[in-house]
């Protein structure tokens, strides 16, 4: 395809292709824009807002905003870092995220972003919401305490597995991930080999009976911060 255009991210001129989102163009150029709900195998929904960048002076979710020729984009700025910190911070206090005994620790994108952003403790008061644990499925645990409502599972089940296991239900603070089953996850057609079982960025949807089998030092984010793979693997 010859629809090459030029955009600028943080003063660096890069080449992009028409039809790409800003996030995709940045990834290809080896520039990491932090994200949580976005995933390379899923259609973007612009929900978490962690990937917000400033495009020609206006904030935009980079996972859904298509590139246009001549765009001037700000990504790695102190102001955006602070906004992203605030979002991550709110996610921590709105759920019950106890990293110290969560088996996703070291492989968790929320935790890894907090480390990358230098968040050592939340600045907002913990909400300690009452959340339940759905252990009804023989091979998969659904722990709502750790859900950040990214809806990756909803999309993965529909787009990749050809199923419709998950849906967002409720409104506002009470919004949660529901399952399309009689009562609980065990009543759905979810299978442990589904893509949706592997796509959760946090410790909400986890495979049973394998927690903690990877030792410290060998977990995904033990050696390098989140985003390092993108920063090292520029393809354009």
């Amino acid at each position: 395809m010859s629809d090459k255009i030029k955009i600028t991210i943080d003063g660096k001129a890069i080449e992009a292709e028409l039809g790409q989102t800003i996030l995709e163009a940045a990834d290809a150029a080896g520039i990491y824009i932090p994200r949580l709900c976005a995933h390379k195998d899923l259609l973007p929904i612009g929900s978490c807002r962690v990937c917000t960048v400033i495009v020609d002076g206006r904030p935009q979710a980079s996972c859904v905003k298509p590139v246009m020729d001549g765009m001037v984009i700000e990504n790695d700025t102190e102001e955006l870092l602070q906004h992203r910190r605030n979002i991550i911070d709110m996610m921590f206090v709105e759920g019950n995220h106890f990293c110290m005994f969560c088996e996703k620790s070291g492989n968790c994108e929320l935790q890894a972003l907090a480390y990358r952003f230098g968040i050592t403790a939340p600045q907002y008061p913990f909400q300690f919401p009452e959340k339940d644990v759905d252990a009804s499925h023989p091979d998969i645990l659904l722990d709502h305490n750790r859900c950040i409502m990214c809806a990756r599972c909803v999309r993965a089940s529909q787009e990749l597995d050809g199923k419709n296991v998950f849906q967002s239900i409720g409104r506002g603070f009470d919004r949660k991930i529901g399952v399309n089953g009689e009562k609980a996850l065990g009543d759905t057609d979810m299978d442990v080999n589904d893509k949706a079982a592997d796509i959760c960025p946090v410790g909400c949807i986890i495979k049973k009976r394998v927690g903690f089998e990877t030792p410290y030092g060998e977990r995904l984010y033990d050696k390098e911060p989140i985003g390092s793979d993108i920063e090292k693997g520029a393809t354009a």
Binding site: M100, F101, E103, V133, A135, L141, K208, R209, V210, G211, F212
Partner: peptide, 14 residues
Amino acid sequence: QGRPYWEVPVLVQR
């Protein structure tokens, strides 16, 4: 109570 059993050795040591 309610936590998965494989989490217990890591949780309870706290």
